[in-house]
Simulated assay, not measured.
Amino acid sequence: MASLTIRNLKKNYGAVEILKGIDIEIEDGGFLVLVGPSGCGKSTLLNTIAGLEDITSGDILIGDKSIAGLHPSKRDIAMVFQSYALYPNMTVAKNIAFGMEMRGVSKAERDKAVADVAELLQISQLLDRKPSQLSGGQRQRVAMGRALVRDPQVFLFDEPLSNLDAKLRVDMRTEIKRMHLRMATTTVYVTHDQIEALTLATKIAVLKDGELQQFGTPDEIYNDPANVFVAEFMGSPSMNMLTVPVEEDAKGLFLTLTRAGGDALRLPLPASAAMKARIGKPVIFGLRPEAMTDPASADRQGAEILEDQFLVDVVEPAGADVFAVTVLNGTPLTARMKPSARVKEGEMAPFALNLSRAVFFDPDTQVRLR
């Protein structure tokens, strides 16, 4: 095992820049998730680590050794693909052992490694089957087993769960988490699913258009977003956003929001230097759905809880939660409530806004105001 460092990595296809100076460092045994929308460069970045793509400039290090110019077979990396890439004419056991056989590992060692990995992934009963006899989740376990027997310094996962149904995705996510806790091998995992990112990662790198938007722990990415893109991309439902001018009176700084029917609602603002510089200018006000809820569910540790009545526009039951949509400044905002809140469309209901969880952004630069 070893740490993984990516330094000012750039990748061009002709005149087109795909990766624009990526800097990331993940500790020995860490779990790095590369997340972002389609076309953001996350799979290209993974492929440069694997050696499947050459880099234009920069460096990639495992431990203190540069691997940027090495052939993929020399990098001591194992990769799990989205498509499983199993040999259809081989049994599960032979699929897992094939790489070891090609490297000249003895049959006794191969058999022991296959048995150990099969037990870890709970596929011991499948070793004599062919891929066509397996479900999607079982095939993905076999693909993972083939990587695990390598005992590499770094594991790479390229959207391994995207072909599975919703329940299997959750089950396999748990298996991958359990596997990493047991093996503690440095891992890089690509996904477009921000729930997978938040669930699995020790560190997350959010990419957009080939640029690193933010790098940090799941808590930092979710609760302390660096810009509007990160705030909106991470979280489901997405963060509520409103663009509103900053005002000032004798009581301090505030925002004025207009409810359905034209009633005004005053939101007090922190008297920070960044907010004072925006007096008379708009800011983007952001609040997560769970910070906008029914009074009984409000986090009373929050220093600034504002309670008021709002007209409920839409109610979306979701089992353990109820999402209630209200309209402020003509914009729909989503609140996460308990089912016991019993809100109804077209009726007024009490809401609690935890303003200590509010974040603010510059509308021009989209960067966080602090």
Rank of each mutant, 00 (worst) to 15 (best):
I123C: 12
K344G: 03
R173I: 05
P270N: 14
A273F: 06
T326H: 04
F254T: 02
V228P: 14
P245D: 04
L181N: 15
E119W: 01
R103S: 14
D64Y: 02
L32S: 00
L127H: 11
G330N: 13
E17V: 13
M239R: 09
A97R: 14
A231K: 15
L267M: 03
K208S: 10
L355E: 04
G319W: 05
R368C: 03
R182D: 05
S3V: 00
L200W: 09
G145V: 03
E316G: 06
P332V: 01
F351D: 03
S162H: 12
S272N: 03
P289D: 13
V114Q: 14
A264T: 13
G69T: 11
R266M: 08
D321I: 10
I24K: 04
K20L: 04
V117R: 00
I26C: 04
K74G: 04
T185H: 08
V16R: 13
A277D: 13
M179P: 06
D165S: 13
F229I: 07
D28E: 15
V244L: 01
A118C: 08
K74V: 00
L161C: 07
D59Y: 00
K20Y: 05
N95Y: 06
S272G: 11
I176H: 09
G137S: 05
T331K: 02
R129Q: 12
N227E: 07
M144P: 12
Q125R: 14
G302V: 04
D165N: 08
F81E: 06
D128G: 08
G319Q: 07
L156E: 09
L200C: 02
A184G: 03
R288M: 03
G63T: 05
V343Q: 08
T48Y: 12
G14H: 08
L267K: 02
G235D: 01
L168R: 08
N163Y: 05
V246Y: 07
T56N: 14
L126T: 10
M90C: 05
M239K: 11
K112R: 15
V114S: 07
E196W: 10
P363W: 01
L46P: 15
N89Q: 09
T217R: 09
V314D: 12
I204V: 12
M241A: 00
Q301N: 06
L333Y: 01
G63I: 00
G99E: 15
